[in-house]
Lab assay of single mutants.
Amino acid sequence: HNGKLCKLKGIAPLQLGKCNITGWLLGNPECDSLLPARSWSYIVETPNSENGACYPGDLIDYEELREQLSSVSSLERFEIFPKESSWPNHTFNGVTVSCSHRGKSSFYRNLLWLTKKGDSYPKLTNSYVNNKGKEVLVLWGVHHPSSSDEQQSLYSNGNAYVSVASSNYNRRFTPEIAARPKVRDQHGRMNYYWTLLEPGDTIIFEATGNLIAPWYAFALSRGFESGIITSNASMHECNTKCQTPQGAINSNLPFQNIHPVTIGECPKYVRSTKLRMVTGLRNIPSIQYRGLFGAIAGFIEGGWTGMIDGWYGYHHQNEQGSGYAADQKSTQNAINGITNKVNSVIEKMNTQFTAVGKEFNNLEKRMENLNKKVDDGFLDIWTYNAELLVLLENERTLDFHDLNVKNLYEKVKSQLKNNAKEIGNGCFEFYHKCDNECMESVRNGTYDYPKYSEESKLNREKIDGVKLESMGVYQILAIYSTVASSLVLLVSLGAISFWMCSNGSLQCRICI
């Protein structure tokens, strides 16, 4: 991952900044910058967002509201009850120091605090018919004063009620008058409520006091790749198909172990950190130390980045220098085999997901714990399936590479015959000098055995068991695999060879 928040398929997220979902939807004055928000790819909250409900109280069923919003990608904020005409018999300019803005008392931008007009609070009834052709999110509140005197001074009615009804919602609220500790300079409380109004449905408000009335509502448009994440990451000019709280993932790998919460087309989250597919040879310690064997393909974004291909070729060293050249036929066979294998694994496992966190309130801790156990169970199954699949494929890959290298080895052996000696570690020792032209003939299969047989015969008789390297004779190393990324691999195959001279070296080696 890149540690950044990015656009998702070209669409920017909605960053709530210092506000949370509650503050944004109710219209906390400190969240005025969010009022123009219309569309987004996903919503970003920060872990310690401080601006929620400015007048103390709870947004009821907040967790369910977050779940609903996680599939919303755009909205239209509109005046559901026009301020100047909807409440002619009531005062609608209630403000509070708890919702101060720029040093002055204020109130929510989407709600109206209705109080008595003169000395009376006549029963009010108002309704709205949803003609938007889509779901409408309606929010309101109920004020709970701290004393009967406060109730009387604001609403005149000691036994007030609030009723809200639609086809799918029907509740009646009565204020709970009680002494409470002071929070944000208030002994009173406000509880906030919401409902989704279906197209064509009607919502009716009736009250004799204590109503925090809707002013603006939201017509919602769903987008199934949307979601809500909690993150401290910063926004950058970048684009992605998959976003996590820790950063964007741009990967076609089937798995990731970065974060379980994802938005967009994302690899499946697994616990494993070692889900690797081999593309090189079986481990040979001396070669492995030099980083030549054991190439791997990573299938977990965050564990290993991208696929690494092994390729086969020849390396030689003689009086004229040293050089490398790919054996294109065996390399292409290996590439085709690995590509098919990788595609097979991805096809089997690479279903892209959006995974969002589930919200539970403080009273639902047991449910949250149960949900976590269920999620953990599914996660263990996914991890096991992934590891088992790759384990089985790896064994076949190792066998496949062994065969490829063996074929190259036999190709060289059949040409050199007794003009060189096998020394048991995949290397041959020449009994004759071999210049670049000679080396090329070994690589392309045109090695002239009779041409060098007499010199080889004489050297075999002279050496008589002495280690060949100390006599200045020449080696050919018969097994060799270097490691390159897919891009470098293609470039390498396009070149005939490249040279690395070893000044004054008397050794001649050709490596497979």
Rank of each mutant, 00 (worst) to 15 (best):
T279H: 06
I346P: 08
H401T: 15
E393C: 04
R366D: 08
V405S: 09
M277R: 09
E437P: 12
P285S: 01
M367Q: 13
M277E: 04
K329L: 10
N385D: 13
S481I: 14
N336I: 09
F428T: 04
L487R: 11
N361W: 06
N369C: 03
D375V: 07
L281Q: 06
K365R: 15
Y431S: 00
I300R: 05
G424P: 10
W311F: 14
T397E: 09
F428I: 03
Q332I: 03
T262H: 09
G426S: 03
L388N: 06
S234L: 13
A478L: 14
K372V: 08
I258Q: 04
I346T: 02
Y431E: 05
V345G: 04
D435P: 13
E265V: 05
N239R: 04
V483C: 13
K417Q: 08
P254S: 11
H432V: 14
T331Y: 03
L388Y: 05
N257V: 15
G357K: 05
V342D: 00
S234Q: 10
S286A: 13
P450L: 12
A297K: 09
G377V: 05
A295T: 04
L388R: 11
G445P: 03
Y312E: 03
C238S: 05
K467F: 01
N369V: 08
I381K: 06
E359V: 15
N369R: 06
N371V: 05
T240D: 10
I284D: 10
N336G: 02
I335L: 14
M471P: 15
E440A: 15
H259F: 04
D464F: 11
V390R: 03
M439N: 08
W382N: 06
L363F: 14
S344R: 03
Q320K: 07
V270M: 02
I423S: 14
A248N: 11
S231I: 07
L389S: 00
G298V: 03
L490D: 00
R271E: 06
I476V: 04
T244D: 01
N232Q: 12
T446E: 05
Q332P: 04
W311N: 06
G247K: 04
P260Y: 11
R509L: 09
D380Y: 07
I308A: 06
Y314E: 05
L506S: 00
S470A: 07
L363T: 05
E422G: 02
G337Q: 15
N343D: 08
I510T: 01
P245I: 03
D402L: 14
N232V: 15
I249E: 01
I423Q: 12
A420W: 02
M349I: 15
R509Q: 15
A334H: 06
E395T: 15
R282F: 07
G424W: 06
S251R: 03
T339Y: 13
W382L: 05
A478K: 02
G472L: 02
S286D: 05
G357M: 04
V261I: 12
P260L: 01
K274T: 14
E395S: 13
A297C: 10
A478W: 05
C438H: 06
Y314N: 11
V374R: 05
E440N: 09
L477A: 09
I423C: 11
L392K: 06
K421V: 08
Y269L: 02
E429A: 05
N385T: 08
G303E: 06
G264T: 09
I296V: 15
G504A: 13
W304G: 08
T354C: 10
F428R: 14
Y324T: 05
D448N: 13
K241I: 13
M349Y: 08
F430P: 13
R396E: 10
K467T: 09
S234A: 13
A334P: 09
G306W: 06
G504S: 10
I496G: 05
F353Y: 15
A248W: 05
S322P: 01
G303R: 05
T279S: 01
S272M: 04
C266T: 01
S286H: 06
N336H: 04
M439H: 11
S497C: 15
T446R: 06
C434A: 08
E364A: 07
D464C: 15
Y289K: 11
L477Q: 07
L388E: 08
Q475V: 13
T331L: 04
K241N: 14
V374F: 08
D380F: 04
M349L: 15
N436E: 02
N333T: 12
A326H: 02
F498E: 14
C501G: 02
K462P: 11
W499V: 12
K329R: 15
C427L: 09
M349A: 09
D375Q: 08
H316W: 07
N444F: 11
R396D: 13
E301V: 11
L392S: 08
N232H: 13
G280P: 04
Y312P: 01
G298F: 06
V356C: 12
T240P: 00
L403Q: 04
K365N: 06
E368T: 03
D402P: 05
F498Q: 11
N394S: 01
V345F: 14
N407A: 14
N444A: 12
V405N: 07
V412N: 08
N394P: 03
S456P: 00
N385M: 08
T397W: 03
G377S: 10
C266Y: 09
E429V: 10
P267D: 01
D399F: 03
F255E: 10
V442I: 13
K365E: 04
V374Y: 15
F293H: 07
Q317Y: 14
G504W: 03
K329S: 12
N425T: 12
Y449D: 04
N419A: 13
K329N: 03
N361M: 06
R290M: 08
F299R: 02
F378H: 05
R276F: 02
N419H: 05
N336A: 14
E461V: 01
Q328V: 14
H315V: 04
Y269T: 03
Q475T: 05
A233T: 12
E387T: 07
I510Y: 02
N369H: 10
Y312V: 14
Q256R: 07
V473H: 08
L398F: 08
C501A: 14
H236A: 13
R509F: 00
S497W: 07
L487S: 11
R460I: 11
S481V: 03
